[in-house]
Design a binder for these strands. Sequence first.
DNA 1: GCGTATAGGCAGAAATGCTAGGCGTCTCCC
DNA 2: GGGAGACGCCTAGCATTTCTGCCTATACGC
Lengths: 111, 111
Amino acid sequence: MADDKAAILKGTLDMLILKIVALGPIHGYAISQRIQQISNRHFQLQQGSLYPALHRLENRGWLAAHWRATGTGREAKFYKLTAKGRRRLEAEVESWERTAEAVALILRTAE
Amino acid sequence: MADDKAAILKGTLDMLILKIVALGPIHGYAISQRIQQISNRHFQLQQGSLYPALHRLENRGWLAAHWRATGTGREAKFYKLTAKGRRRLEAEVESWERTAEAVALILRTAE
DNA sequence: GCGTATAGGCAGAAATGCTAGGCGTCTCCC
DNA sequence: GGGAGACGCCTAGCATTTCTGCCTATACGC
């Protein structure tokens, strides 16, 4: 089991997607590539995880979607962050930072 | 919704438990208190999450348990780390660190 | 005798991400 | 013109994990 490529940590997927979308309108396929690229290929985001997540985020009103042509002349569904989504992203990032700190605190506890 | 107390981030519970147990033999109830205490009360670990997790870790051979009296004269199940558990803990910590770094990388990506 | 802290446990639900497929199109190259 | 592979979207079913909510029992102070 070479866990060279790690699955995305549960609970962080939404935040990562929101963050990528916050960088500018982007379609699903490109999101997965972007996440792998930026994370130095650490994360392996499966399409079967991505698309349901996108629909979830859209249903919650954090993302808005519309079809548009890509650079390669194909139709794709572009997502962009809503105002609500931006607030959500900020909240999730803050929560993540506090959590990461708490984990670090425990891990640093000396024997 | 004051999410003052955060639930434990999915996927980190096992690691945190292993880490606490690595500090010395300890029983379940004390583990939950320790985690809350060390994390500056950030984490709220429910007993309904803790005990199933302990059984899981024991079944996998990462923890070993034996009944013993506590300081207050009550019987409690003390857990200690096995050699296998120690290796597992190291692996999980390393994986966590790489993951946290990858998340940070994405979050730091400028607009 | 009673309430609270200590200590362990289970059943059921909810969320989340994965595996494993399917669909159609476009481009490139032989 | 035919095949391969990249692009792009999607669903169904599953496994795992953690939560909520409940139960039991003992020790101790009042």
